[in-house]
Amino acid sequence: MAEIPFDEEEIEDSGVDDYDDDTASSTASLSESIFDYRQIHGRTFQNSKTTEYWGPNDERQNNGLDISHHFVTMLLGDQLFEAPIKIPPTRVLDVGTGTGIWAIDMADKYPSAEIVGTDISPIQPMWVPPNCIFHIEDAQLEWTYPEESFDFIHIRALYGSISDWSELYKQAFRTVKPGGWLEDFEFNITLMSDVPEVRDDPKHIFKRWAEVFTEAGERMGRTLLIGTGGQMRKLMQEAGFVDVVEKNYKVPSGKWSSDPTMKTIGAFNLAFLDESLEGFALFMLKEIMDWDYIEVQVFVSEMRKAINNPKIRPYYILTNVFARKPEI
C-alpha cells in the first residue's frame, strides 16, 4: 500500500481546505414524490419492507455517491474495475448500484454487453444507454437471476448494508459464470492521521467517530468493518472463489498531497465526505444510537472541521478485492 506523498511547507501555507462546486459530479434522480420515502429531519430515506438502509436517497447524498465514483475511478487508474477480465463481458451485474453511475459508465464502455444494476431505491436516472437496465431488488434476499448468468459481478460500498456477507458472496458465486469475476470495493469508516497529536490521541474525533459507528453497525447486525482485516478475501475464498486479490489504498481527505493525482483525488474525496457526513450520521446516530438531533449536528460539525484541516493530513484506507470462479 503506497504512502501518500506530501510537502510540509505547502500544507502549512494552504490553510483550511475547500473545493470547487463546479468539479462535483451530479445526477438526475427520479421524482421522490411518486415513491414511499421516510423523512428524518428533512432528509429522505428509502422505506424498504425488507432492508433498513442507513443512507439517505435524496439529491445531496446521491451527489456524494457520484463524486465518490469519480475519485474511485481515478484511484483505479481511470478504470472502472481491476479484475483481469481477458474477454469483454457480455452480461454484468452491479449489486447495490445506487445512482447507477458505474453501470452507466460500464454500458458506455461495453456497448455490446447487457449491464444490470440492482438497488432497493429507485434513484437511477431515466435516460440511460440502451444496454443498461435497472431492477429494484434487495441483495440480501434470494437473487432472482439464473445460475451462471453473468460474466462479471460488481459490488461497491455496501458496508453497513449486509447482514450476512458470506451468503452474499455465495449468491454471487452461484450467479457468475465459470471463469467469471466478482469484485467488491469497500470503504473504511476510520479516518487516520500520521501526525502524532492526532494518531496518539485516543479521544480524537477520528477515533470517537469510528467507535460509535462501529457500535451502530453491530446493533443493526450489519458490520461497517467488512473492508478491514482481510474479511472480504477470506469470505470470497470460503464461497469457492480462486485467484483472490486484495488491494488497499490510502486516500487523502483534501488537497494536501504533493502528488498531482492524489491532490485531485483528495479534493474529490473531501467533497464526497462533506456531502455525505450528515446523511451517514443522521440515521445511525439518531435512530440506532438514540442521540438527540443537536448532538448529531455538533458531532458532524467536529468531524467536518477535522477532515478539512490539511495540517493533520487526514486519510483513510479503501479496500478492493476481486476473485474468479473456477472453470468447470
Score class of each variant (00 low, 15 high):
residue 249 Y to Q: 01
residue 64 G to W: 04
residue 168 L to P: 13
residue 110 Y to S: 06
residue 280 F to R: 04
residue 246 E to G: 11
residue 36 D to K: 13
residue 285 L to F: 07
residue 301 S to C: 09
residue 59 E to M: 08
residue 82 E to R: 14
residue 88 P to N: 09
residue 288 I to D: 08
residue 291 W to F: 10
residue 122 P to N: 00
residue 67 I to P: 05
residue 110 Y to L: 02
residue 63 N to V: 00
residue 312 I to V: 05
residue 32 E to N: 12
residue 276 S to I: 07
residue 203 K to P: 02
residue 85 I to S: 08
residue 37 Y to V: 00
residue 36 D to F: 02
residue 133 I to T: 15
residue 268 F to C: 13
residue 174 R to H: 05
residue 95 V to G: 11
residue 148 E to M: 05
residue 300 V to P: 12
residue 151 D to L: 09
residue 148 E to G: 04
residue 163 S to R: 07
residue 244 V to A: 00
residue 276 S to E: 03
residue 205 I to R: 03
residue 216 A to T: 10
residue 29 S to H: 09
residue 230 G to L: 03
residue 175 T to P: 12
residue 136 I to H: 11
residue 202 P to D: 10
residue 95 V to W: 09
residue 181 W to S: 03
residue 210 A to G: 13
residue 150 F to E: 04
residue 257 S to Q: 02
residue 7 D to Q: 11
residue 314 P to G: 03
residue 81 F to W: 13
residue 194 D to G: 06
residue 178 P to H: 05
residue 282 L to R: 13
residue 239 A to W: 09
residue 131 N to K: 12
residue 216 A to L: 07
residue 83 A to P: 07
residue 187 F to W: 13
residue 181 W to T: 02
residue 207 K to N: 15
residue 213 F to Q: 15
residue 142 E to M: 12
residue 317 I to H: 10
residue 64 G to K: 02
residue 239 A to E: 07
residue 22 D to K: 14
residue 62 N to F: 00
residue 213 F to K: 12
residue 21 D to C: 14
residue 2 A to D: 05
